[in-house]
């Protein structure tokens, strides 16, 4: 059984077709990169999978269950946004613990688990900081920890390393690859950078070919 199936999805904005009969299948633990120029609809596909955008046609299956009509919060998808979307009114640890809180995990337990995730992403001791004082790379790590902490069925990464300087970019790409593999996560990565795709993912696809 595949972890994620995108079946024949169409999306149009104001009459312009952005996704046209797109289909995609991913096995569990698979890390796939989706390549394509900006504006080609890669992010839209991630949003359709996450349930943020409703497709005009087609369906989304996660672990074999049709989730097309299911609201985002019930889908068990995690998403790392290009601009992180950390919650500015919460500390670093509270950001990481947010998903666990929504899942009903008790305070002590969720803070412990979040601290472990902060260690995983190399931010030991950062828990009490406010997210507005983080550097670009640190914020990205927090976003990653926040998403992985709830152990979602599928992790969606929308240009996660765009906008970082070259050095940091390469370091984070390698870290990201090992983190995702260590967690055994099924992950769909959107990027316009073929090198990044090769570093992080098991296979690369072009949206135009789907």
């Amino acid at each position: 059984m595949s972890a994620l199936d995108v079946v024949d999805v169409d999306v149009a904005f104001d009459g312009v077709r952005v996704l046209d009969h797109v289909s995609l299948s991913m096995a569990s633990g698979d890390i796939t990169a989706l390549l394509g120029p900006s504006g080609s609809g890669k992010s839209t596909l991630l949003r359709v999978v996450a349930g943020i955008i409703r497709p005009d046609r087609g369906s989304i299956l996660i672990d074999g269950t049709d989730v097309t009509a299911m609201p985002t919060h019930q889908r068990r998808v995690g998403m790392v946004f290009q601009d992180n979307q950390l919650f500015p009114h919460r500390s670093v640890i509270e950001n990481v613990a947010f998903g666990l809180k929504m899942a009903g995990v008790g305070r002590t337990s969720r803070l412990e688990r979040s601290a472990v995730w902060l260690d995983h992403v190399g931010l030991h001791g950062f828990g009490a900081r406010t997210v507005t004082e983080l550097s670009g790379g640190e914020a990205k790590r927090v976003a990653l920890a926040r998403t992985l902490a709830v152990e979602p069925a599928v992790v969606l990464l929308d240009e996660p390393l765009t906008g970082l300087d070259r050095d940091l970019h390469d370091r984070l790409a390698a870290e990201l690859a090992s983190l995702l593999r260590a967690a055994g996560t099924t992950a769909l990565l959107v990027t316009h950078d073929a090198d990044e795709a090769a570093t992080v993912a098991d296979r690369s696809l072009r949206l135009a070919d789907l």
Partner: peptide, 15 residues
């Protein structure tokens, strides 16, 4: 950002 609300939803928060 609408995406911040979407981020919360992907983390399991209901509307």
């Amino acid at each position: 950002p609408a995406d911040m609300e979407a981020a919360a939803a992907t983390l399991g928060a209901s509307r």
